[in-house]
Design a protein around this nucleic acid. Structure first.
Lengths: 190, 190
DNA sequence: ATTATCTATAGATCTATAGATAATGC
DNA sequence: ATTATCTATAGATCTATAGATAATGC
């Protein structure tokens, strides 16, 4: 039974990390407070010394999922000779489709955001703008003017392909959906 | 208190219709059996004379949502001089974004399918194939060979745009996402 | 006689709180 | 003295069932 402030901070971080993983997989409503605390190695009664309510944890977990998405994007781009190809091949890959926990939070939790409170929708909007800005830079030639409309359409293609690929049962069909999105976005370089 | 066989059939249909509407809005897990029965004008105790379990109703409601999606598609195409434009302008419209109940079941319930049992995923796969076949026909020139890859990418663009447009809070940004998807798909005619 | 629907409830589960325990930190 | 965590539980809600009621249909 740890009690120091350091240990409380570590517990807090474990709770958020556990919630983020479980919610990326099952949605923000799926895991109970007891599930989350158990996944963090704690009992459920202690939860309310860390958060005023379950909803407060949802907000923290979604924000943490956005951070993880940005980190995954950074890793995908790191050292790539062709950053657009690197991003697209990471995003619309079978590996990303099968790895909900550390993948894109927009694709995993968008439905929850649409149903959720305006605070969640703001977090989503920021993340969508971030992806759109990245695609604007990656799609355009260094000299050419940025094409926001093309970047938004490419983002819809990638998010939609990941989303649909996760909803269909057949692996081959699912892989073809991802491949078609990769081809389509890569063919739209200006 | 109605008891005839005809009346039971009508009750059954009202239960499925109520479940379909509530699940399109909140996901397959959101409405309780009592919510659904109340929305159908019945009390919850009678439910199990119609379905063996709540899961059995989920399957019926998702199938019914697919039927409604097909009917909405048919209506959007009816009498259109430019069927591709008619489909795209219906699908990626603010009106469709704001009307979850009678809209595309793939965009509304895809996340649930990804988490759900293989039976649901088969229903989704069939519906995705149906949309892809339609887009193959609409995108190609009458003489040209069908381009399945292009059709799948266009479908991802449309589904993704509707999905993302529902997750962001700002109406103007949401509308721009839809407009970019319409433009992008319409510019890809062969 | 059968059965569609109703009221009532059993048993499970969920959020949040209360009070005990054991460590930290003034 | 304070507090992070634990055990226990109150109150709400959910799925599913039991038994009563009132209509259908042989």
């Amino acid at each position: 039974m740890g009690h120091s402030r350091d240990e409380k901070t570590r517990s807090h971080e474990r709770i958020v990390a556990a919630a983020t993983g479980l919610m990326m997989e099952g949605g923000t409503e799926a895991p109970s407070v007891a599930d989350i605390m158990s996944s963090a190695g704690l009992t459920h009664g202690g939860f309310y010394k860390h958060f005023a309510s379950r909803d407060e944890l949802v907000a923290a977990a979604v924000a943490s999922a956005m951070d993880a998405s940005n980190e995954a994007t950074r890793e995908a781009l790191e050292g790539a000779g062709d950053p657009l190809a690197a991003f697209v091949e990471w995003y619309a890959s079978p590996a990303h489709r099968d790895d909900l926990r550390s993948g894109c939070a927009v694709a995993a939790l968008g439905t929850d955001a649409g149903r959720g409170d305006p605070g969640l929708q703001e977090l989503f909007q920021d993340q969508v703008e971030r992806y759109a800005g990245l695609l604007e830079r990656l799609l355009g030639e260094p000299g050419a003017p940025a094409d926001r409309r093309a970047a938004l359409a490419a983002l819809s293609t990638l998010v939609g392909a990941l989303y649909v690929s996760r909803a269909v049962g057949d692996e081959a069909f699912s892989a073809e959906i991802l491949a078609s999105a990769r081809e389509s976005v890569l063919s739209r370089r200006s």
